[in-house]
Nucleic acid binder design. Structure first.
Lengths: 198, 198
DNA sequence: ATCTTTCTGGAACGGTAGGTCCATAATTAT
DNA sequence: ATAATTATGGACCTACCGTTCCAGAAAGAT
């Protein structure tokens, strides 16, 4: 019917996610994006509308990828081990500085809180979904409803804090130690409750 | 000797802190600053060098103010109560949305990690000073050296996480509940050690 | 081969960014 | 009063921002 698109859309979005993740929304210029994605201005606007539209798409992609990591761990391991491995994978495992950009959702909340409420809320909703996953894991691990809710909120706070440390290039062992401390608290508290006969 | 300055420098810096704190570095334009500070371009460049120079000064002011809050609580209350009140004051007490901008130091780390390493490191050093204060309080409360170090790192992570939640306009009771959970873990762990006779 | 449709490269747009410059105003020292 | 010095307001500069526009290239349909 007409001339076909010349670039791989998914691949271009992946490149954009990487850039936005690393540099944030404001500091990533259209020129940066065009260079990384390898397409011209016209193609860009034809395919994505505008910069903000692309960013929304990137947030969704990032969130889906993130949730998939946790969900997959949950399918394969005991619930607490899945949670731990999610944290460790996200914050410790790799020494590649190219992967220590913190969490794109957290970064977005902080950067855009007073700038673009729509984007900030979208990122917040994605974070809430992750927190719900935390809660489900804790429930699987034997926590009572109130307990799992409380602990999930706590773990989300730890998650966010860890992402901040991550951006400061804290050492990997220190990071793992902090995570271990946090999980020790949660598991200890759950164990204590069970030991006391609920 | 010559014409005197017409504006109150300290007061102007306070205004700038407020703006930077709320909107971040990049999203705060020189025009915004000039309007808020009430001075002209020439006076601005004469007094502060450039935008980045002013930002450095604002980071220092913010950090000093922040540390003073904790230090004052420490002088007046038992150590754990001082820590708790610092967290509660920063995150819970006020419903005024004008004070829920998160922590300027945390915001800076996140926003500028990949943009301006110098500013990011400066904010990180200020955060480290706060963490040292946490450690001192925990030591006063009877923690052993290793324990206080570990718990201080943990509390800093909580601190950073809470600041992120703060920017998402989480409800005050929820915020206080999370903080209470975190402190409950720390205090419970310390109490357990003491009960077992170290 | 022609028509139609969509995609593409690049020039161009208005707006705003941070920063400079200069003539003038205000002060102190003489 | 005048000279010396510094502060101030505002015009001006260059660079870059996100976005639009248009002429032309590339494909399918007839």
């Amino acid at each position: 019917m007409s001339r076909p698109v010349e670039f791989d859309r998914d691949q271009a979005v992946q490149k954009a996610v990487h850039l936005f993740w690393q540099r944030g929304y404001q500091a990533t210029s259209l020129t940066d994006l065009l260079d990384a994605m390898g397409l011209s201005r016209s193609s860009f606007y034809g395919a994505f509308g505008d910069k903000r539209g692309l960013f929304v798409e990137c947030l969704d992609v990032f969130a889906a990828r993130n949730q998939a990591i946790l969900q997959r761990a949950r399918d394969r391991k005991p619930p607490m081990a899945a949670l731990r491995s999610y944290f460790e994978r996200n914050f410790g495992q790799t020494a590649d500085p190219d992967l220590h950009f913190g969490c794109m959702l957290v970064n977005t909340v902080i950067e855009l809180a007073a700038i673009d409420q729509g984007l900030c809320d979208l990122a917040g909703r994605h974070l809430k979904t992750v927190q719900d996953l935390f809660e489900a894991c804790l429930g699987d691990a034997g926590a009572e409803p109130g307990e799992s809710k409380q602990a999930a909120a706590f773990l989300m706070m730890v998650h966010e804090g860890a992402r901040v440390s991550d951006r400061q290039r804290i050492s990997i062992p220190d990071q793992l130690a902090r995570i271990n401390t946090a999980f020790g608290y949660v598991e200890g508290s759950m164990a204590a409750r069970i030991e006391l006969g609920r």
